[in-house]
Design a protein around this nucleic acid. Structure first.
Lengths: 191, 191
DNA sequence: GTTAACTCGAACATACGTGTTCGGGTTAAG
DNA sequence: CTTAACCCGAACACGTATGTTCGAGTTAAC
């Protein structure tokens, strides 16, 4: 870890942050966004963008890394191993369902543009949190064991994504999302 | 309906079918596929493609129309109003889950490239079948009424999509998909 | 205030996708 | 067998995205 690289000037660091912010938004809501669009959204010249991120690919990877790190942080804070698995699951949904969703949309893009291989390990890092929670639920006897674990995880992520889309299109109110998700997922997952 | 247009030669008709077949596959599994790729996959020259479908947009619309017609046919045959809603639902999943999924992936693309407006009505045409089935289930008291109907429909389509993806990546066996879907959806939807 | 880091517009090279035209070669249909 | 429909490669015009280079202007840092 540590402060690798040469020390950057303050405005450079600010721009890099702005670029990553803008890129995250654009990539998730319009995956084919051009570098020009990202630069504009970040309030930065195109050349500056390329100065920090030599290629679209590098930029995507950077955004991915940053988002995964953040998501890991949020999940770790919101859903430790306290309480029953059911409680912890509800807490997870309530505090971080939109983070998990961003995460998911970004992965669809990364899978297409970076290939599945360079994704697996990083993906693991976050999925494991959900998978671990479900595994604990199985031990406690509240989560079903008649379906493969991978499918249960898929179910969670899939409905998370669906809820976010319904919120986007106005079919579902954002405030209701977590409740609706919990009401749908618990019966689907419980043993 | 009738045989509109001038009568086409047999080989032309064959090519058109091949193009629509190839386009359906490519559009659903790689939405940004180029016209060149589609022509190659159809075993047809690029010029021939443009001769039949003057633009990418027209081609997409044609594929959409054809798929919706097929899907409507399949669903109508497989899931009439016979038996209980639960039974009919199982039958629907077992006979047409992959059709419904193609349908869904194609719509994601069409929504992006054709805009949401030109889609609604055609979308309705197919979604109504699922929605109607769920509505009947509510009357029979087997489908929950505590969540919005739109969300229930979303849930069905979303998991359909997820199952197809898991089959693609090898995490789920194609033969198990319908069973797994039913085992997940019924508890999630039942009252 | 000097310097080195940084920004940014303009312009260029390159690649790829779309859609069109031309002309000769095939092939189905009568 | 004759003809009209059809196929298809080559080439062109056009647009747009990616990266790169140049040079001049700003600005943070010491």
């Amino acid at each position: 870890m540590a402060t690798t690289e040469t020390r950057r000037r303050a405005d450079a660091e600010r721009n890099i942050a702005a670029i990553l912010d803008a890129a995250l938004v654009l990539f998730t809501e319009e995956p084919q966004s051009s570098m020009v669009a990202i630069a504009r959204a970040a309030g930065v010249g195109r050349v500056t963008l390329y100065a920090h991120f030599p290629s679209r690919e590098v930029l995507l990877e950077a955004v991915l890394d940053r988002t995964i790190a953040e998501a890991g942080e949020v999940i770790r804070k919101a859903a430790p191993e306290e309480g029953s698995a059911t409680e912890a699951f509800g807490r997870l949904l309530r505090t971080s369902w939109h983070v998990l969703n961003q995460h998911r949309k970004l992965f669809e893009l990364a899978q297409r543009e970076l290939g599945p291989v360079r994704l697996r390990q990083r993906h693991r890092e976050v999925v494991d949190h959900v998978e671990g929670l479900l595994a604990r639920g199985r031990l406690e006897g509240v989560i079903r064991s008649d379906l493969p674990m991978t499918w249960l995880v898929t179910t969670v992520y899939s409905l998370l994504h669906a809820a976010a889309e319904d919120v986007n299109t106005g079919q579902l109110k954002a405030d209701d999302a977590a409740d609706v998700l919990e009401a749908t997922l618990l019966p689907a997952l419980k043993s």
